[in-house]
């Protein structure tokens, strides 16, 4: 089709930012090294030239402070996008996000709104070690008042970031460091992806694999291998964990009767466990095997690359778990 073209994940995000900042002058962005340098992952290139230093702000290393400033600006008519370089550093801003941003709408009896997007980036990379490799979506998932978005490809990244900027509530928008250079088709024309709509990334009959963020391309690779073995896997990407599209998940499980949930984050207290409990409650009668979860190991991420591979699910692990779950 002539009205789509191939973009990198980071380029798709960049386009969403440019479009939204062009459309709405209350949108501005701040973070470390995002203006002059265009961001560590080049998501914010050209923004400074296009929109100037008032709306594209290089911050000091003061995450709690500038995130709080984002909350204040959001409460008073702006639509800030705050970039936290690594999700690991978002642990420094938990008060502003959890106690402040997430609460104001409720505590004010719905008179206050906090249209803030916190863009951040998580997951295991290549030897970045324990303080730069975490998947912490469960922490935000746990907090009422926050939306949690984790796009897995360029198309979703652009459409979801635009929705995040339109959203009147705080959104935790979690990118993945290994996805920035992935390619995908993105339409020329303007589009948004509403929150709460899962995407069936691949249709199948024998088994549902639920995965998000960087686990989606891995699950899709696993599905290719499974196909050769005669197992037809459906891959469902919720795309937004809050709100969660339960109906697409349940519908898929009813069809395949087998389900494997794959998450990069460590298993304990993770989102996969919660999705599993939802399926168990709402589709128990349709299940033909126990709900399987493949997750990161309950341990900090090691620096050594060979050991790092052991702590998060790899394609072969997904294939193995899927075989078992589908009884094949």
């Amino acid at each position: 089709m002539s009205d789509t073209r191939e973009l990198l994940y980071r380029e798709a995000l960049n386009e969403a930012l440019i479009e939204e900042m062009t459309n709405d002058e209350t949108v501005f962005i701040m973070g470390e090294g995002i203006a002059e340098r265009g961001g560590s992952y080049k998501v914010t290139v050209d923004l400074l030239e296009k929109f100037g230093p008032k709306r594209v702000i290089d911050t000091p290393i003061a995450e709690n402070g500038f995130t709080g400033a984002g909350v204040g600006a959001a409460l008073t008519g702006m639509r800030p996008i705050v970039e936290i370089l690594f999700i690991d550093f978002s642990m420094l801003v938990l008060d502003q996000i959890v106690n402040q941003a997430a609460k104001f709408r409720f505590m004010s009896g719905n008179t206050a709104r906090v249209p803030l997007v916190l863009r951040t980036q998580g997951g295991v990379g290549n030897g970045l070690a324990a303080q730069h490799s975490q998947s912490l979506e469960a922490i935000f998932y746990h907090i009422p008042g926050l939306k949690v978005v984790m796009p897995s490809d360029p198309y979703d990244a652009k459409g979801l970031l635009k929705s995040a900027i339109h959203c009147d509530d705080p959104v935790i928008f979690i990118e993945h460091k290994l996805l920035y250079m992935n390619k995908g088709m993105v339409p020329d024309k303007d589009y948004v992806i509403p929150f709460g709509e899962a995407s069936v990334k691949r249709e199948g009959e024998d088994l549902t694999i639920i995965a998000w963020s960087a686990m989606v391309p891995k699950a899709l690779k696993a599905a290719e291998i499974l196909k050769e073995e005669g197992i037809s896997a459906e891959v469902v990407d919720p795309r937004t964990l809050v709100p969660l599209d339960k109906s697409t998940i349940i519908e898929s499980v009813r069809k395949t009767e087998h389900v494997l949930i794959v998450q990069e984050a460590i298993r304990r207290g993770g989102v996969a466990s919660d999705i599993s409990s939802i399926i168990q409650e709402e589709a128990f009668d349709y299940l033909d095997s126990p709900i399987a979860i493949l997750a990161g190991k309950n341990i900090p991420c090691p620096f050594n690359l060979n050991l790092e591979k052991l702590v998060v699910p790899q394609v072969e692990d997904i294939v193995k778990a899927a075989r078992k779950s589908a009884y094949k």
């Binding site: 324990a130 303080q131 090691p302 620096f303 050594n304």
Partner: peptide, 16 residues
Amino acid sequence: LGREDGYCKGLGGSMH
């Protein structure tokens, strides 16, 4: 180099 003989057994790396 991420070796077990390192100060942090190769679990920490340069930054740790």
